Simulated assay, not measured.
Amino acid sequence: MLAVQQATSIPDPLSVPSNAPEHCPGTESDLAGKADACAGCANQEICASGQTKGPDPALPFVRDRMSTVKHKILVLSGKGGVGKSTFTAQLGWAFAADEDSQTGIMDVDICGPSIPTILGIANEQIHSSSSGWSPVYVQDNLGVMSVGFMLPSARDAVMWRGPKKNGLISQFLKDVDWGTLDYLLVDTPPGTSDEHLSIVTYLRESGIDGAVLITTPQEVALQDVRREINFCRKVGIKVLGLVENMSGFVCPNCKGESQIFKPSTGGGRQLAKEMGVEFLGAVPLDPRIGKSADYGVSFLDEYPDSPATTAYLDIIDKIKAQL
């Protein structure tokens, strides 16, 4: 009986303010603003008044913008440095290789926006019109939006608390003139925090097709990805599958492969089996992937004979098949 009471007292993570105290009951709770944990919280008065229980006024505008977006895919990983943004860029280029498809990439890694550099558009700026902000276009059918376009220089740090991050994500969804898109890819930061809760909240009504999770073979990365899978299940996001990045090293000259990150507990394939999700494939570590990202060019186009390119394309075909 005690276990049931404890489980039912856990608040919906989407109802907890980003700057809430540790034991916040959530804005939807009858104890909002009244619990002991609320004492001293900056949101206590507004939570107690019940004003937080209404829908976010941005939601209708987000729903309207997203009505012309066919598929919405999140790229997630609990661990930083596993190649999430690089994978998002390759996925975007692969979708855009079909001239009849329109693809957008939304970079919500607010404190570490690397998508503009990887796509070769780091020096571009956002322009606005009567219809809203215009994405920066890599090519005619591949548009991008990132906080990186708003910074005075690449050296400037973004030091924002949760509410400001939430506000920017809201603007990216409701104020950007994405037009008609076949695919909107959302590149997220590591973890399961502000940015993730915000994007799920705003897209809940519009629908998210699913999430692709990125890991590397070693256990220290797999631990965080397990948490990310559980996050997806708690907030109702379908896991399209798991990708193991940096899965061995391929020598560009001899084509021999060596393990850099040893899969001591079975790697991504074993994790996918353990968690009951699809294993989409393993991408070997080709040093030219990093070179392509630094120069802002498509690795798939530059090195079509690489085993990594073959792996990327097989994974992308599996994702398309699910959509």
Rank of each mutant, 00 (worst) to 15 (best):
M1L: 11
L2H: 11
A3N: 12
D12L: 07
L14W: 05
A20L: 00
E22H: 09
A39V: 14
A48Y: 00
A48H: 00
A58C: 08
A58I: 12
P60S: 09
K79C: 04
K79L: 01
T86R: 05
Q90T: 01
G92K: 02
G92Q: 01
A94P: 06
E99Y: 05
D100K: 14
D107R: 04
D109W: 12
I121G: 06
S129G: 15
V136P: 02
V144A: 01
V144L: 08
M145V: 15
V147Y: 07
F149H: 03
M150R: 12
P152Q: 01
M159Q: 10
W160M: 08
K164C: 05
I169C: 03
Q171F: 10
L173T: 05
V176E: 00
Y183V: 13
L184K: 02
L185P: 03
V186W: 12
I199C: 03
T201P: 02
S206Y: 04
D209C: 04
E219G: 04
Q223V: 15
Q223Y: 11
R226H: 08
N230A: 12
C232H: 11
I237M: 09
V239L: 10
S247Q: 06
P252H: 03
Q259V: 07
K262N: 14
T265W: 00
P284W: 12
P284A: 09
G290W: 04
Y295P: 01
Y295C: 14
Y303I: 13
T309A: 14
Y312L: 14
Y312P: 07
I315K: 05
